[in-house]
Write a protein that binds this DNA or RNA. Sequence first.
DNA 1: CGTATTTATTAAACCAGTTTAATTAGAATC
DNA 2: GATTCTAATTAAACTGGTTTAATAAATACG
Lengths: 168, 168
Amino acid sequence: MQFYRKEVYKKGAYLIKPEQSIEDFYFMKKGCVTYYTIEDGVTRVMEFFTEGSFFTDLYPYIEEIPSESYLEVTEDSTVYTISKTDALKVFDYSHSLERFGRLSMQKAFINNFQRINRMKNLSNQERYLQLLEKRPSLFQRVPQYLIASYLGLTPVGLSKIRKRLSQQ
Amino acid sequence: MQFYRKEVYKKGAYLIKPEQSIEDFYFMKKGCVTYYTIEDGVTRVMEFFTEGSFFTDLYPYIEEIPSESYLEVTEDSTVYTISKTDALKVFDYSHSLERFGRLSMQKAFINNFQRINRMKNLSNQERYLQLLEKRPSLFQRVPQYLIASYLGLTPVGLSKIRKRLSQQ
DNA sequence: CGTATTTATTAAACCAGTTTAATTAGAATC
DNA sequence: GATTCTAATTAAACTGGTTTAATAAATACG
């Protein structure tokens, strides 16, 4: 029983756009997807999903309401996709996969929680350095202004931080 | 089979302190527990757990490493406690409770995720107002400097925001 | 009670970001 | 290779916070 499907996307494609309902859960095999919203013309990057990430636009997925976000392929990508109905079937069928689901969710929760604390406790400069250390490849994969947004900065602000660092 | 126990704590007690290993998961029936760390003498509030919260110091709980945080009872509280071994037994025994566990984790994840975005997209003033609206009772229950810390501000900063608002 | 202690506010100097706008650098396209 | 378009940097004025320190208000307690 093959309950997921393999899909290949070109850079520039969208897995999800605003107004859409969310039917699928994704696993990133290879590539990069940027998860963002646009409010009042301002792009706000929430996450970059790269190799090994499970993801979707979770809140609309669960609540069965339309998305307000984009999942844009920012680098040619291979993803494994499972529909919501198939995911539920799998969980009904298998206690151990339900457990896997629980543990995955737990892991995602912890990641997020630690990220909150990182954000709260570190300066912007420190958070930039930490990102540079933990996910250096991002800086080759996505433009700097998206990284600035992800860090909660303006492009100008990030540029200033980089300058300050290069002068030391 | 009663797998949880009811416990009553007085204000000032600790469920968890640094160095301890985390054996239990908690459900807050009534009261308030403040979850914080102290680094370099600086208290950083991560969360206030009030009625209806499931909580523990999750990362050390899962990784089985010592905690670095405090769970301090900031208001007389009644909690239901379940040990890690009992929780695992329950999940082994019951697929539907495992599902409940997964869904609870999912809910916690979404809450957190939305909080991240709130933090990123809103000004400090807006986040203060939002907290005031969503959890007004907190301001009666915990001192303002802890709320400042929770919002990522200094007590002075929060006081200025309050003044600014009162002058409009 | 009155005194001691903790919490909240205020003031002043400072700083790391913002906004706006101009400039430079880099990529894509003809 | 020149042109065009997008991304990144720089500059200048500004803003919302910080830090430190003093003061005022609230709370605890002998």
